[in-house]
Design a protein around this nucleic acid. Structure first.
Lengths: 169, 169
DNA sequence: TATTGTTATACTCTATAACTATA
DNA sequence: TATAGTTATAGAGTATAACAATA
């Protein structure tokens, strides 16, 4: 999902000709700039690109990192719970967990209490991989947040948490 | 790009059995919860879903809304500038602008100054569609932000702008 | 009858590379 | 030689539906 802005005028301050000089990257945002959602998306896109670059050597499938982290934080949970948490279909959870098992980062066990379920566990190898990835992600995030003071970082996290818990839980 | 958290323990406060009750949606986040990027992603995912639901009847291709808004705010710009701005390849800009022309929301004109370029313009029909979509998006965003006071909203926007301009420009 | 996991299929999105016309 | 736009193709990502095992 993307965003957009209204019939905006050429900024008289910039003295552009009738046809815009599109070689510059500084386009007008128009109404788009009024939305917080747009700002979120813009930053998150860039963060994603930075993370992808940093984790490129792990050759991670979409959703694989999330899944591993969730399994790590919730040992014994089911595939369908993983799917729900990362917002994908259960059939995609199968593919992701196949991948995790192939890497020996996680393993399936038959649930003792409900034999339909697989109980998922992270392996020591998986924990090590996760440690490595988290360390890299912390570096990326630090680069982005260092422009804010510790108080401002806390403020930001707190505002985002309020939004999430009040609206989406 | 996704996220994840560490080998976390079962919360003793919740008194869950050896195998987690995965029917509840309240999983542990583990290390994941320490990242601002994770919070951004979580909110933005949900916002995207809400926007998609609200705009479902327009049957919008990915990137189409962004492109229309950018054209509206920058009349006469080139296809390659649109591509750069929404972070897609120029070949995808072709598809998107084909779609916009089919809907009569935008039109191509040959550039007067560089005959290789198409100068892009939004149509009155396109402006009307954009007005409609923006109105719907404002409703979605208002629902999400109403939990914050006006000062807090301003604070949030300002923090996000600082991050973007300091790190990504 | 409903749920968990699995498989197969079809569809969408995207990147890539080649091509043209203009510069 | 480089750039703007176009087209074709192949690959990845995803949703969907059907199925088996279990509840």
């Amino acid at each position: 999902m993307h965003w957009s802005g209204i019939s905006v005028v050429v900024d008289p301050m910039r003295n552009v000709p009738a046809e815009l000089d599109t070689d510059q990257g500084d386009l007008e945002l128009g109404r788009l700039g009024n939305f917080v959602g747009f700002r979120l998306r813009r930053i998150q896109n860039q963060l994603s690109r930075n993370f992808a670059a940093v984790l490129a050597d792990h050759d991670l499938r979409h959703g694989l990192f999330s899944a591993l982290a969730i399994i790590s934080a919730n040992p014994g949970l089911s595939q369908i719970a993983v799917a729900r948490e990362i917002g994908l279909d259960k059939s995609l959870a199968v593919i992701i967990i196949d991948d995790l098992e192939r890497r020996k980062w996680a393993r399936r066990e038959r649930s003792q209490t409900d034999r339909r379920r697989h109980a998922l566990f992270i392996t020591p190898t998986g924990e090590a991989a996760l440690d490595d990835m988290f360390a890299k992600l912390e570096l990326v995030e630090h680069d982005v947040l260092e422009t804010l003071s510790p108080e401002e970082r806390h403020q930001l996290a707190s505002l985002l948490d309020r939004i999430y818990t009040d609206c989406f839980r």
